[in-house]
Design a binder for these strands. Structure first.
Length: 419
RNA sequence: GCGAGCAUAGCCAAGUGGCCUAAGGCGCCUGUCUGUGGCACAGGAGAUCACGGGUUCGAAUCCCGUUGCUCGCCCCA
């Protein structure tokens, strides 16, 4: 056991794993571009109050998962616990309500939560997310869902399910929760211990309990979509008709609620077909009260977050072909100190010309250096020995075909830089 | 916060009381091949057997504790 290890729930992203990240990030960025979303990068830490106000005091995130610390000036700060609240804060701080609405933004950033790590769950994980702030129209809900759906297919995950629900707004939800509570109070004798406390603390969460008896009760429970006020119902129906116009199938699950307080109306998740804990790879919804909660004028918004670690896990599980990181093109092999000097010079000139070059381990025999060329998967070895140095040439060896020719260094440099 | 399992070189591991001065494989290094890689063969480096204590004539192996990791619950991406 080494003296120091990466802190619990964090991982080193090694060179060999980078290809997944580059792949997902580039696909995500391209989708965002096509939908007209601009990138935003917010700080890694925020005023602790932002999350308390935004996410909700009773949520698990705020109650027990935030990394909170006091800095040397006495400010209470929190490592970013969630993606949406910081973007909304930035929206307010930079007066984005004066831009054309909605303001469309995306982010790729780390998120920190103090949880017990397990498969697909970390204390530092990374999310690709988008937010469309300032437009209440249901077509924006459909657009955000379409964006998520498109991104999944672009990276090669097609065996996935979109799950949707509407949990109403400030007008109809209180009534729904009353109905839900009275339903559960009548059957409270059959509830598990956790659910009994949920009944008081967070009745919506009763619906997604995994205990079999509670599940069965959840099936019969009042459904939020049946208790919507007229405005919410109209919104919900239009989201559904836009989705169907785009041919995006979705399963309405009245037990889908979400753990953050700010959600209103549309909520959704995307789940892969393979069963397993922490299977959700994308989750989001509308948050029409959040900006106001953070001190702004009433402003609607909708967005989602998608966990890059979980996406990677699913790419590997489904054996999606992900392009390798490009390996260095040239390895310079030298024999003797004279040639070494030429090798250093050549590498320097190549790099200056924008061509990738690395020097082989000069302490090794030619054979060992060639082995290195093989191990590094370079496409070409450049060999400098006594003869080449004397003649101002370099032996250019194609590692695939094993064909080799001796060319003047200047000619080689010209060709390499040009091609 | 609760529950379960695991811990032997960089990685995968055999070993369940004494022939363990710890097998084997991958990877790494060297040589066979004095200036040419992949294949093959030969050799080499690399392990306080997670840490601490106990039982025993004897512990990688049994017991206790600690730490770490993994998996599940809660919740989430």
């Amino acid at each position: 056991m080494p003296t120091f290890q990466a802190p619990r729930g964090t991982t080193d992203r090694l060179p060999a794993e980078q290809k997944y990240w580059r792949y997902i990030e580039s696909k995500a960025m391209d989708v965002a571009r096509r939908f007209g979303y601009g990138r935003i990068d917010s700080p890694m830490f925020e005023d602790a109050g932002l999350f308390v106000r935004g996410v909700g005091e009773g949520t698990d995130i705020v109650e027990k998962e935030m990394y909170v610390f006091e800095d040397r000036g006495g400010d209470m700060l929190t490592l970013r616990a969630e993606g949406t609240a910081p973007v909304c804060r930035a929206y307010l701080q930079h007066g984005m309500q004066n831009q054309a609405q909605p303001v469309r933004m995306y982010y790729i950033c780390p998120v920190f939560r103090y949880e017990r790590p397990q498969a697909g769950r970390f204390r530092q994980h990374h999310q690709f997310g988008v937010e469309a702030i300032g437009d209440p129209d249901p077509s924006v809900d459909a657009e955000v869902i379409e964006l998520a759906w498109t991104m999944m297919h672009d990276i090669g995950l097609s065996d996935i399910t979109l799950v949707t629900n509407s949990i109403g707004d400030g007008d109809c939800r209180p009534e729904y929760i009353r109905a839900l509570k009275s339903y559960y109070e009548n059957v409270s004798g059959h509830l598990c211990q956790d659910c009994k406390s949920r009944l008081e603390r967070n009745p919506l969460r009763l619906l997604d309990c995994k205990v079999e008896t509670c599940r069965a009760l959840g099936e019969e429970a009042p459904k939020s979509v049946e208790c919507l006020c007229a405005a919410c119902e109209d919104h919900w129906n239009r989201v559904q008709s836009y989705l169907s116009a785009m041919g995006i199938a979705n399963r309405v699950d009245h037990r889908l609620v979400r753990g953050l307080d700010y959600y209103t109306r549309t909520v959704f998740e995307i789940q892969p077909a393979v069963e397993g804990a922490q299977s959700t790879i994308c989750g989001g919804g509308r948050y029409d009260g959040l900006i106001e909660q953070l001190g702004g004028r009433p402003t609607p918004g909708i967005g989602f977050g998608s966990g890059i670690e979980r996406l990677t896990l699913n790419l590997i599980r489904n054996e999606v072909a992900v392009p390798d990181e490009p390996s260095p093109q040239y390895l310079i092999v030298t024999m003797g100190e004279e040639a070494r000097i030429e090798g250093v010079r050549l590498a320097n000139q190549m790099r200056a010309a924008g061509v990738g070059a690395i020097l082989a381990n000069g302490g090794r025999a030619l054979r060992g250096q060639m082995r290195q060329a093989n191990a590094l998967r370079v496409s070409t070895a450049l060999i400098l020995g006594e003869d080449e140095v004397r003649d101002g040439t370099v032996a250019v060896r194609d590692m695939q075909t094993s064909s080799q020719q001796i060319v003047p260094v200047d000619t080689f440099l010209c060709n390499a830089a040009g091609g």
